[in-house]
Design a protein around this nucleic acid. Sequence first.
RNA 1: GCUCGAGUGGUGGAAUUGGUAGACACGUUGGACUUAAAAUCCAAUGGACAGUUAUGUCCGUGCGGGUUCAAGUCCCGCCUCGAGUACCA
Length: 983
Amino acid sequence: MKYHFNEIEAKWQKYWASNDTFKAKNNSNKPKFYVLDMFPYPSGAGLHVGHPLGYIASDIYARYKRHKGFNVLHPMGYDSFGLPAEQYAIQTGQHPAKTTETNIATYRRQMDQIGFSFDWSREIRTSNPDYYKHTQWIFSQLFDSYYCKDADQARPISALITIFEKEGNTTVNAVCDEDITSFSAQDWKQFTLIQKQEILLKYRLTFLSDTEVNWCPALGTVLANDEIVNGVSERGGHPVVRKKMKQWSMRITAYAQRLLDGLDTIDWPQSLKDAQTNWIGRSEGAMVHFKIKDSDKSISVFTTRPDTIFGVSFMTLAPEHELVAEITTPENKAAVEKYIKATAKRSERDRMADVKTISGQFTGAYVAHPFTGEAIPIWIGDYVLAGYGTGAVMAVPCGDQRDYDFAKHFAIPIPNIFRDIDISEHACEDKDAVIANSDFLDGMPAKKAIKKMIYELEQKGMGTGKINYRLRDAVFSRQRYWGEPFPVYYKDGMPQIIAKEHLPVLLPEVEKYLPTDDGKPPLGNATKWAWDTVNNEVVDNSQIDDKTIFPLELNTMPGWAGSSWYFNRYMDAHNTDAFASKEALAYWRDVDLYIGGSEHATGHLLYSRFWQKFLFDKGFVPVDEYAKKLINQGMILGTSAFIYRWEYAHEDAAKEKTIFVSKHKMESIIKERASIEKSKRNQVHENLDLAATTDRKSNAKEQWSGFTPIHVNVNMVNASNELDIAAFKNDPIHSAYQDAEFITEADGTFIVGREVEKMSKSKYNVVNPDDICHDYGADTLRMYEMFLGPLEQAKPWNTAGITGVHGFLKKLWKRYIVNDTFSVSDEEPSAEELKILHKTIKKVEEDIANFSFNTSVSTFMIAVNELTALQCNKRAILEPLAVLIEPYAPHLAEELWQQLGHKESIAHVPFPKYEEKYLVESSKVYPISFNGKMRFTMELSLDLSKEAIEKAVMSYEKTQKQLAGRTPKKVIVVPGKIVNIVG
RNA sequence: GCUCGAGUGGUGGAAUUGGUAGACACGUUGGACUUAAAAUCCAAUGGACAGUUAUGUCCGUGCGGGUUCAAGUCCCGCCUCGAGUACCA
C-alpha cells in the first residue's frame, strides 16, 4: 500500500461532502469561531496558485479551531457581479449570468480538489436575486436615513421630517450637502411635495447629486479613481474624460470620524490601518473667510495653519472654483480663460503628477485681509484642487514651500512672520518656529498661536475652527448591466423607493449590453423596465403614464455593494425575510479571523466598515466593527519567462524574418556588439558569430537595433530555463512566429530570461493548482504553499522545492505503513519519543497563534526525521501526530486515522494536549563564550547555582586552554542560557 | 517627497523577551542499492586560511558609527529594493 494521494484525496473529499463534516450549526454548546476569506470574483481564467494561499491559511486555522472544540463557521461564496463578465457579454452576446455560472463551476472544482473545509451549504453569490434582494433593501434603508451629529448616528428620515415640521432646519445638526439653506417650520409647510423631496435628498445617507465623474465613453461607464491607471481605464485602456453626471452617492463622510476611531478597537495590520487613516485624511485647522474687495461675497479657505495668517501675500483658487468667472477683471479675462482651458485638458492625475512646473494666472481681483484689511491678490493655479477643502488656498509663502515657489516664480512678495528665521532660500515649515510681525500672535509658538487665532476669528465672525477630511462621498452608480438594479423609480423626476415586500427588483433582460445610442446606461435597452405602483411589479415601458406607472432607475450598483455586507449573510444564508435572523446575528456576531489581500485597504475594507456601522446604528447588527482580526496574505508572484527577438532592418524588407536568440547567446552578442560599436561606430551591421545562420552570413546588409523581450508561456519552459521550441511554435497564440528562427546556445538548448512579476494572464506566467494537485496531491500543495515563506510576505512562485514537501509526506506515511502493511505497535513510547511529540505540539500551537505556518511545516519535518531515526511506530505517538498534522494535510491525516482503526472523521477529534513534563530537562548544553565568541559547549546540570556553574566552567580543561594563563576580568553566567568569559 | 515594510549562504527561508547565526527544505557534490534509470537511503555543503587527522584561527546577517559581558535583533546616520500615497492647503 503506497501513498496513492490521488485516490486518498478523492475518497475523503467525497466523504466530507456526503457527511456534511464541516457544516456549522447556528446554535451549539461550543464557543463560536468565524473564519472568513475574502470571496473571489469568478474570472474566466480560473484559480491560480496565488488564490489558495490565503484560503489554505484560513483553512488550517479553521480546522485547528475545530480540534480545539469550537463551533467553526468557515464559509465561501462568490462576488459574482462585475465588469469582465459584462465585457465578455458585449463581445460574444453570452449572457453574463451564464459566463458567471461556468466560471463558478471551475472555481468550485478547483477549490474542492484542494480539500478546503468550507461549509458549502452557506454558499452565496452576490448576483443571485435571493442575495441582492437584501443589498437593495440595505440601499433603501440608507435612503430612509440621515446622520444626526448630536446623536452621532444614523436616524430615520421620518424623525427629520418631524423636526422640520416643528422647527424648520435651523436647529438640526446633521450631515448634509453644502448648499443647504435655512428654512422655518412655516416655510416647510408651504413647500411643495417636490421641494420637500429635494431638501430631504440633501440629508439622506444615499442621495442623488451632480458629480464630476470619470466618464469612459468606450466602456460607457463611470470609473472610480482607482479604476484609472495613467489616465486610461484599468480594464481595456480606454480614454477617460471628466464629465458632470447625476449620480447616486453614499454619504460615507458622515462616518469619517467613527471609521477612524474604530481602527483602535480592531486587530488589523498597522500598515492597513495607516492606509485607511491616510485615506480618511483628518486634519485640524480653521475655516477662514476672506471678503472679496468691491463685492459682498467672500472666499472661504481651509487652513491647518491659521496662525500664519499675517504671512498671507496672495490667494490661490483652483481654476474650476465657482467664483473665478465672477471675480476676474475684464483686462485679465482672456488670460484667465486661456489658463482654465489649458488646465481642463489635463487630467487630475496629470496635474498631480507634475510637481515641477509652476503655473498660474492673476485674476485682477483682491480680497481683504481679515485683520489688516490689506488687499490680497487672487490668483488661480492648478496646484490647487477643486475636490479638496474649499478649492481655495490662503498662500503663506514664508511657511509653505509650494506657496513659496509660486511667489518666487511670479515675483509676489514673501513677508517673513517667523522670529530669527532666514527665508531667503526656502520656506520654513517648522512647527516650533516662533511667530513674529503678527500683531497679537507675536512671540507665540505655532500650537498656542493656532488656538489664539481660532478664538479671534470666531470673535470677529471671520472664521471657525474646523476638522477637515480628505475622504469624499462615494459614488454609487455604475452605467453597467451586470450589477444590482436600484429599487428606485422616478416620479416627477424625484426618486421613489420600492418597498421591502416587493423586492427583489430583478435585473431585466436586454438585447445588448452596451449603452444605448442616446448615451443611456445598458438598462436603457430594456423594454420591460417600468414600475407599476398599483400592482407593484415591473411592467412594459409602453405603459408608463407617470400617474401610476413610472420609469425605473437605469444605473446599477457598483461592485462593492454586494461585498459590503456579505459576511453577515453567511450567518443565515437562506433567510428569505431578512439578510440574517436576529438569532443568527446574535450568535455569530462578528468575524473572528478575516484573511485577504491588502489591495482592498481603501476600497472594500473601508466601505464594508461603513455599511456595518450604519447597520449597527439601525440596530440590525449587534456590533459596529465586523472583523476583530485581519491578516493580509502576501501576493504570490509569477516568474515570467522571456525570449529575445532580434531587432533588425534588412535592406530587402521581404527577406526579414523573426529571429529569437537564446539568453546567453544574446548576452555575448550584446557584449561583442558593444566592442564593435567602439571601433566602427554607426556602421552597417556585419554579421556576428552566428555559425548556425548561414543565410545571415552571406547577406550582411542588416541594421541591428537591439533585442526585444517577449513573454513566453512559463508552462513551455522547464526547470533549467530551457524553452520547448516545438510547443512554442504549435501554440496558436504564437501563430505569427511559426516560421521564426531560433538561435540556440552552443549545446543546442534555448535558454529563456526570467523575471519576477505579478501573476497575470497577459504575462503568460500563470501557474494553476490543477497540475500540482494531479502530480503531487492537494496535501503537498497545501503544505508547500505554506512552506514558501511567511504568509504576509509577497513571494515568487517556484516549484523547485516541492519535492522536499512531497518527500516529507511520503516519509510520514512510512511511519504508519511499512512494506504495504499498516504496522503500528501498541508498545509504550519512550521518553525520547514523547519529548519529540510534545515539543512538536508546543511549537505548532505557537506557530498557528502567530500565523507562522511556514515554520510549522519545518517542525513537522523535524519531528518525522527524528521519529524515523528512532524507527518509532508507536500508536501513542503516531495517533496524536495525525491530529497535529490534520489542518495542514487533511486527506492524509484522515486516511491514517482510518488506518489507525477509527470509524469517525478526524475533523473534530480534540487536539493533543501539550504537557510540559515531557520536555523538562535535567541538563543543558551550555555555549561557553570568550569575549562574546562561542568556543565550545559544556553540558551542565540545570539545578546548579550561578556560582556552581562558574566554578565548573572555570575548572574545565578547555576553559584553561582558551585562557592560556590569563585571568578573566568577569564571568557572566545566565543560568539555562549562556556563559561568557570576559578578559 | 511622505508613510509603511524589507535587505541573512548558490536559492526559499529559520533564529519567540539581546544569549551557540544559517533550523527546515531546495540545489550541488560524493557514496550505497540497481544491468541501467527512476525511486529510496547515507554523507558533506557560509567563506578564507592552517593541519596527515583530531581540530584550530580569522571573516561573516546592505553600509558607517554607537550602546552592551554579548547585537541579525536595540540606538544614531546612510544606501538599496518593494508596497502604498501624493501639489491635501
